[in-house]
């Protein structure tokens, strides 16, 4: 199966380890992975700020890079949700529609398409899962605490296959961390307070690591943890699933 690797711009620039782990995981499970080298950004930062009308260039570049694959996989819920909801290209409407339908966030791809049943990975640490909002409520990676419906969690399903890992419980299982794209600077005070509260929930419950599918939320919380000289670290879920011993 021909899989294109979609690495969100900020992951490309600042968190290459999450991207490498994603690539290696996909290769391990037999995917024929290509990284289209002229990819940039999905356009979400503009769209969520009210400038969706400026995203045409990003959209066209995205379609040029990602057309013709069976699947497109990214280590991000947020960017994938944006592509699935908003990618359009007046030059290639059918290609754009196919891309919207075949773009996957990594965890969902592992559970729903590759149907992975085991990992050769060990991570003997206490880990808290941060449910990113776009992954949770947008891509339905787990049951949402607001609904009256049967519980499930794709990240937990996968992490439970990692040896030695101990997943901690949280006071608030799926509250937003306050990153929110440009919200993190436009609403600095509330964003920081939300982030501090989210981090505190993890630390109070004994987390050594906070993991999740979205590096953007983790970057936000990492910024707060570093400033606080905390020993708690963030790590993308791909890095844990890809072997993970640090």
């Amino acid at each position: 199966m021909k899989v294109a690797l979609f690495i969100p711009c900020y992951v490309d620039q600042f968190f290459p380890n999450a991207a490498i782990a994603t690539l290696q995981l996909l290769e391990k499970y037999g995917c024929d992975v290509t990284y289209p080298k002229n990819q940039t950004c999905c356009g979400q930062p503009m769209a969520n700020s009210g400038y969706a009308h400026l995203t045409g260039g990003c959209d066209r570049n995205f379609v040029d890079n990602f057309k013709g694959f069976d699947y497109i996989v990214a280590p991000s819920g947020s960017c994938v949700l944006h592509v699935k909801d908003h990618l359009h290209d007046e030059r290639f409407p059918e290609e754009a529609a196919k891309i919207r339908a075949t773009t996957y966030e990594l965890v969902t791809f592992l559970t729903d398409v590759l149907k992975v049943e085991s990992f050769d990975a060990s991570f003997p640490h206490k880990v808290g899962i941060h449910q990113s909002c776009h992954g949770l409520r947008g891509l339905k990676l787990a049951q949402m605490s607001e609904l009256t419906a049967a519980p499930f969690s794709k990240p937990v399903h996968l992490l439970n296959m990692v040896s030695g890992i101990e997943l901690i419980d949280l006071g608030r299982v799926d509250e937003c961390c306050g990153f929110g794209g440009t919200f993190c600077v436009a609403e600095e005070a509330v964003s920081v307070k939300m982030g501090k509260d989210r981090v505190a929930d993890h630390t109070l419950h004994g987390a050594e690591y906070i993991t999740g599918v979205d590096m953007s939320c983790l970057m936000h919380m990492e910024g707060l943890l570093h400033r606080d000289n905390s020993a708690v670290k963030v790590i993308h879920i791909a890095e844990i699933l890809n072997g993970g011993v640090r």
Binding site: F14, Y35, E188, G223
Partner: peptide, 25 residues
């Protein structure tokens, strides 16, 4: 920088993923 008031910037990696990929694949 509103980010920096209460949050550190991410640590700078040696290379971007794109650069790593060119070398390794």
């Amino acid at each position: 920088n509103a980010w920096y008031l209460h949050r550190d910037m991410p640590e700078v990696p040696k290379s971007s993923f794109g650069e790593w990929y060119s070398k390794n694949r």
